[in-house]
């Protein structure tokens, strides 16, 4: 193997890698959607101060934030079949994709729970009282008054979580999912050109992250449209 850096190869493999982009997005979109819904539920449950449940949620969030996503992947990959075997369901032949989506959902749930909790707490208590005083019920007041304001505060953090989650999906190949990195690994095996393949992969990730960031900045402006100008600028 000669050591010349092959630029043409990079350009040649990028289209091949891009064919596997839908897999990456599938993991990302499902885990973000489930994560947002479950995260919101956990955040509300935690804010309701239900004695034991509150501690369980705190431990769950602390554990997810305290362990690498790689370890979580392995735990889900080996743990879920072992758990389900206890109730005699055999999932050893299940597509690795499901394990990946479960792992990233668990991980994103913890992240979103913290984000939503912090965001809901930033909304002034008086807003809730004002909503009650005009006759809204608790649920109505939360859905129509508190939540829209909280989402504005939470949005930059949600965007950051999505971007770091996209980067985390690059580890899905380690339990055998054929995503972009997985395809890259097979290309390395066939071309023996590891460096060029990783450059190509990095370019793809970098471009996607930049596009996502542009979309998020645009959306952030939309969420801030009712804010006074001097506050909206930051």
């Amino acid at each position: 193997m000669d050591n010349n850096f092959d630029v043409v190869l990079i350009a040649k493999v990028i289209p091949t890698l891009l064919q596997y982009l839908p897999v990456t997005f599938e993991i990302l979109i499902f885990s973000i959607l489930f994560g947002i819904v479950l995260g919101l539920v956990l955040a509300i449950l935690k804010l309701l101060h239900i004695p034991i449940l509150k501690h369980i949620i705190t431990i769950y969030i602390s554990y997810i934030r305290g362990t690498p996503i790689l370890v979580q992947l392995f735990l889900v990959f080996y743990g879920i079949p072992a758990l389900l075997k206890l109730i005699h369901i055999d999932v050893t032949r299940m597509d690795a994709m499901y394990f990946v989506i479960i792992t990233y959902t668990l991980s994103n749930t913890a992240a979103f729970a913290e984000i939503f909790r912090a965001a809901i707490l930033t909304v002034d208590r008086g807003q809730m009282e004002a909503a009650y005083s005009v006759g809204l019920s608790g649920t109505q007041a939360f859905m129509r008054i508190v939540f829209p304001q909280a989402i504005r505060v939470a949005f930059p953090n949600i965007a950051n979580t999505m971007i770091s989650s996209l980067k985390d999906t690059s580890l899905a190949f380690s339990i055998g999912v054929m995503d972009m990195v997985g395809r890259g690994e097979t290309l390395i095996a066939s071309t023996t050109r590891a460096f060029e393949i990783y450059v190509a992969l990095s370019i793809v990730y970098y471009v996607i992250v930049i596009i996502l960031e542009k979309i998020f900045t645009f959306n952030e402006r939309y969420f801030n449209r009712y804010m006074p100008k001097e506050l909206a600028s930051h």
């Binding site: 990195v181 990783y198 992250v209 960031e213």
Partner: peptide
């Protein structure tokens, strides 16, 4: 800064290791 924040850390490790 934007490149290293915009790509997964595993890419950095592999790029350095092979590059």
């Amino acid at each position: 800064v934007s490149f290293f924040r915009g790509t997964p850390i595993i890419m950095h490790i592999m790029l350095v290791y092979f590059g």
